[in-house]
Simulated scan of single mutants.
Amino acid sequence: MTEQQNIDKVHIFHEQLKEQLHKFIVGYDNLLDLLSITLLTDGALLMEGIPGTAKTTICKIFAQNIGGKFGRLQGAVDVLPMDVIGVQKYLQSQGDFSFEKGPIFSNVFLVDEINRMTPKAQGALLEALAERQVTVDNLTFPLPYPFVVIATQNPYEMEGTFNLIESQKDRFTLSYQIQYLNVGDEVSILRKGIDRGLYMDTLEQSCEAITTLTDILTMQETVKNVYASDDILAYIGDLIMATRLHNDVKLGISTRGSLSLLRSAMAYAAIHGRDYVIPDDVKFLAIYCFNHRLILKREAVLGGITIQRVISDILESVPVR
């Protein structure tokens, strides 16, 4: 196939995926875009929202539609690293150890309420997010491809939560803050509830894979060939530097963050049928790429300045190349 045909395949896949997800999910259009981007960049997505806003349901339906193995871990204070990655068990009958894989050995790995886990348990994800492998007793085990991590978290002000460490948050490609639905969407959810369209057994029976893992790997390669001009690269560089020099910012965007923004913009272009990145792609994704990475100075927080406001100021002040 030609390069444009490959791009068209990515675009069609994304539209089919959104159509399937919208059969069960009301609203959240931008989130569905981010799910596709996360999958196509082999990345990780962090979702924050209060309980009961369909975070887990979205992830499960997403995994079923891409035909991958789904793994899930429920965050709690007593979760141990071995509950995430697995454990070596001694088999007396064989006189040897055998590695029993944890839920992380899946194509779509959902960590539900990640910030209810202690920092020690959260740290078990660091190697997996960065290197797509885990190490147990000095033995390294590769994770399957494709491998996507989707983590949900409750707002930090809720009881029983532990802040994610900075190095952990930086390894998430994108983040999304789930808000309450508007009245119209809320009524649509109620109608689906009356029609039994929200029961998990109904959802699972209605979901069919719209692609294969092999096709996903091919589409990931297609995204890597999307063209980003020197002006786009320079624009991203200017945005990154602006975060590091901003008067209200204590910790700006890392190099990993700039690469995440570039790769996400390439995937965003592909799902919209383009083989090249435009500045609007970068602008749209900046908030989702920067929001969980920026750390404001204490005096800025006390002064009522928000991360969203800082990002908006940067986007308005940095000119497009």
Rank of each mutant, 00 (worst) to 15 (best):
M1D: 03
Q16N: 13
K18M: 10
K18D: 07
Q20A: 12
L21V: 04
K23T: 04
K23D: 07
G27P: 12
Y28Q: 15
D42A: 09
G43N: 02
G43H: 02
A44S: 15
A54G: 06
C59H: 01
I61N: 01
Q64N: 11
F70T: 01
G75H: 10
V77S: 09
L91D: 15
Q92N: 14
D96S: 15
E100N: 14
G102W: 00
I114N: 11
Q122P: 13
V136K: 15
D137T: 07
L143E: 00
P144M: 02
T152E: 07
P155D: 09
N163T: 11
E166K: 07
V183E: 06
V183W: 01
E186N: 01
L190Q: 05
I194R: 09
E208T: 10
E208K: 11
A209K: 05
I210E: 02
T212P: 11
M219K: 01
E221L: 07
V226M: 03
S229D: 13
I236G: 12
L245C: 06
H246Q: 05
N247E: 03
I253W: 04
I253A: 11
S254W: 04
T255E: 09
S260Q: 13
S264W: 04
R274Y: 10
Y276I: 00
H292I: 06
H292F: 11
L294C: 10
I295S: 15
E299A: 08
V301K: 09
V301I: 14
L315C: 08
P319N: 12
P319R: 11
